[in-house]
Amino acid sequence: MRIDGRARALIAADDRGLLYGDGLFETLRVRAGVCPLWDRHVARLRVGCRRLRLPPPAAGALERDRDALIAGAADAVLRITWTRGSGMRGYAPPLAATPRCVLALAPAPAIPVHWYARGIRVRFCDVRLARQPRLAGIKHLNRLEQVLARAEWRDAAIAEGLMLDTGGHVIGATAANVFAVIDDMLVTPRLDQAGVAGVGRAVLLDAFPKTRVRALRRTDLERASEVLLVSAVRGALPVRRLDARRLPVGPWAR
């Protein structure tokens, strides 16, 4: 772990990221000492900084910290946490913020190979995502909705949970974006009111420019011929069972 360019693991108790969730984060897959999607993650981090009116990372600073951590890492996950830094009590942000940067490296999650070959089991969550256009799309530090949703099940056979917003629209999984094949067309939810516009999602949208980005309801997924969950860490995982409904691992997943 590195905090503000130094190898350490303690953070100030008055950090606004800790006190108010005032900040952003990115979670990157590392393979053979390289972050393949680095540029996309940094671009999204900068978008989040503009949205939250946070000073962005200085050019080169993140790269130096990254290189110090991932050298020799064969298969790992790197998390960047970017907060507004320390400040006085109260919600009002400091006029001249000094952001704090935390980089942490951890082993890559153990993902069963059969998940990719045979698909995963997924459920719908009861917790709904609040609609807030100002925060929609970015990866801000407040993940309490996802924490509560993930607490709804303990069955290890269920790999993920799908979340709707308070308007009843499908947004994504607790830690992934969702794609579906409906009427032979690849579709993915609009994320202008809630949710995170994932880097893995962006890769697929670039690769398949005819994908339709539109509002989706639960009933749309219930008639889909394929459902996929996509993230930068796990890649694309086909869904073989959504609640009680069984789905094929079809050509789009392949």
Rank of each mutant, 00 (worst) to 15 (best):
R246Y: 10
Y20L: 14
I11K: 09
A9C: 11
I171S: 09
R51F: 03
D243Q: 07
A61Y: 05
S225Q: 14
R31S: 10
G87A: 01
D65E: 12
I120F: 03
G90L: 13
R246Q: 11
A58M: 13
R100S: 14
D4H: 07
L237M: 11
D243I: 15
L19V: 04
G161L: 04
V127Y: 02
L237A: 12
W153H: 08
R84H: 11
R150A: 06
T174N: 00
I158D: 05
V227M: 01
E160Y: 04
R84K: 08
R44L: 05
A236M: 15
A73V: 01
H114A: 11
E226D: 10
A180S: 09
V178A: 06
P56E: 15
V47Y: 00
W153A: 05
M88N: 13
F208D: 04
A43D: 11
V230C: 15
H140S: 11
V102D: 03
R123H: 05
L247M: 09
R121K: 12
V178Q: 08
L28R: 06
G48R: 08
T166R: 15
A232V: 07
L135G: 09
W38H: 09
T211E: 13
R240I: 02
V178K: 00
A108W: 00
G235M: 12
R214A: 14
P109A: 06
A71M: 00
S225P: 08
L37F: 02
R150M: 03
A106Y: 06
D14T: 15
S231N: 13
V147A: 01
M1T: 12
R217E: 13
R154G: 10
A92F: 04
G195D: 02
A232R: 06
G250K: 11
E222G: 04
V113G: 03
R245Y: 03
L204F: 03
D165M: 13
F208L: 14
A9V: 14
L19G: 01
V47Q: 11
W38V: 00
P99N: 05
A136G: 02
E145D: 12
V170A: 14
L105F: 00
